[in-house]
């Protein structure tokens, strides 16, 4: 009984991570953008403006909740919920740490350690597109529809790249479990470098990063919501908490994708040259492992923000061309090469 209770609490705690990171990210985005553009950014609410996201949330809560007259009501209301659901559910298969011992029970630091975890992630992530399509269609107006169309084409194109990149890692590791892939990255490369997939398969990592940015709808690939062209894309007609849900889903999906990248390429919770993550599942090392994992994710998130304020947006056709003409062939070649190499080595 105690074990079930502990496990339940642990799962609850892990599930909060992306949600807790969202306000931090919102704040960081505004501060970093300000820093890049030599502005001050939000600095009135709380120290360094840290409470700004709270203020934002309060403001959104009290806004009027509008449903446009031409909207298909069911779809319109459901869309933001499906969107956030799709993002949060994939977080379940990402291991944020090794095992932990609580009150004599050994528990995995992961919501669900399923044998086909990576497949789970790839299967459920595209639900996000369905949600965007529901929003675009359900709003019953033009810009959301265009945004949703773009989202559909973009995600279909980049989902392939993402899956092919993931597949290359899976082939090399021989496991579909997140934890299995992390364990596969233990040890050393040439004796002194960490045996991370980032170093073993740099091309795969690059492909994954590009596809990841496209999947998260972030600049330079944020065509579905491109403000100058489409006002706001699929969420143009949304207000109040429904808009907030979309907003949270977008940031939470960044967190989930960064978590996946950390698992696949950065050795998950392990810290090279130290004992963190390798040893017995005592309480402190396990927590340290979680901290390492989170640190890696935060670093990646910083990269995301940096990218957004540095690079200009692509044209839509260029975006699709990039995927179909360059990235997919490259990813296929990469996959075959990795498969052959891992057969030889």
């Amino acid at each position: 009984m105690l074990e079930i209770l502990l496990r339940f609490l642990l799962v609850l705690a892990i599930a909060q991570i992306p949600l807790l990171l969202v306000p931090l990210l919102v704040w960081a985005e505004r501060r970093v953008s300000a820093w890049i553009q030599h502005r001050s950014g939000p600095n009135r609410v709380g120290p360094f403006g840290l409470l700004q996201p709270v203020a934002d949330a309060v403001k959104l809560l009290f806004k009027e909740d509008i449903v446009p007259e031409r909207a298909a009501r069911g779809l319109y209301v459901l869309a933001p919920m499906v969107s956030l659901f799709a993002v949060l559910v994939v977080w379940a298969v990402i291991p944020i740490g090794d095992r932990i011992v609580l009150a004599g029970h050994e528990l995995p630091l992961q919501i669900a350690d399923v044998s086909i975890g990576i497949l789970f992630f790839l299967a459920l992530a595209p639900l996000e597109v369905v949600a965007l399509s529901m929003a675009g269609w359900g709003s019953g107006s033009k810009y959301p529809l265009l945004g949703a169309l773009r989202a559909g084409a973009q995600m279909l194109s980049y989902e392939v790249v993402l899956a092919l990149a993931v597949l290359a890692v899976v082939v090399a590791a021989g496991s579909l479990r997140g934890a299995g892939i992390v364990e596969n990255q233990a040890g050393w490369l040439w004796g002194f470098l960490p045996n991370w997939n980032l170093l073993r398969q740099p091309l795969t990592a690059l492909l994954f990063v590009i596809a990841m940015v496209a999947e998260a709808n972030r600049l330079p690939f944020d065509l579905p919501e491109a403000e100058p062209e489409l006002v706001g894309g699929y969420h143009t007609e949304y207000s109040s908490m429904k808009f907030a849900l979309f907003f949270m889903a977008e940031y939470a999906s960044m967190v989930a994708l960064c978590g996946l990248f950390t698992t696949l390429f950065l050795g998950g919770w392990t810290l090279p040259w130290t004992a963190v993550g390798g040893a017995a599942p005592a309480l402190l090392p396990a927590l340290l492992g979680v901290a390492v994992f989170l640190a890696k994710v935060l670093a990646l998130l910083f990269g995301f923000i940096w990218l957004r304020w540095t690079l200009p947006r692509l044209r839509f056709l260029d975006l699709l061309r990039l995927s179909w003409r360059q990235l997919i062939p490259l990813a296929l070649v990469n996959l075959v090469a990795v498969a052959l190499l891992s057969m030889v080595l």
């Binding site: 369905v130 559909g152 279909l156």
Partner: peptide, 30 residues
Amino acid sequence: PVIAFIQILVYAGAVVVLFLFVVMLLDLDG
């Protein structure tokens, strides 16, 4: 479970999105 998630991967990820795409595309002229 394998076929369950392949089903979701292919259907939700590709087939349904493709259908939605075409439905919206055909609706573009308003």
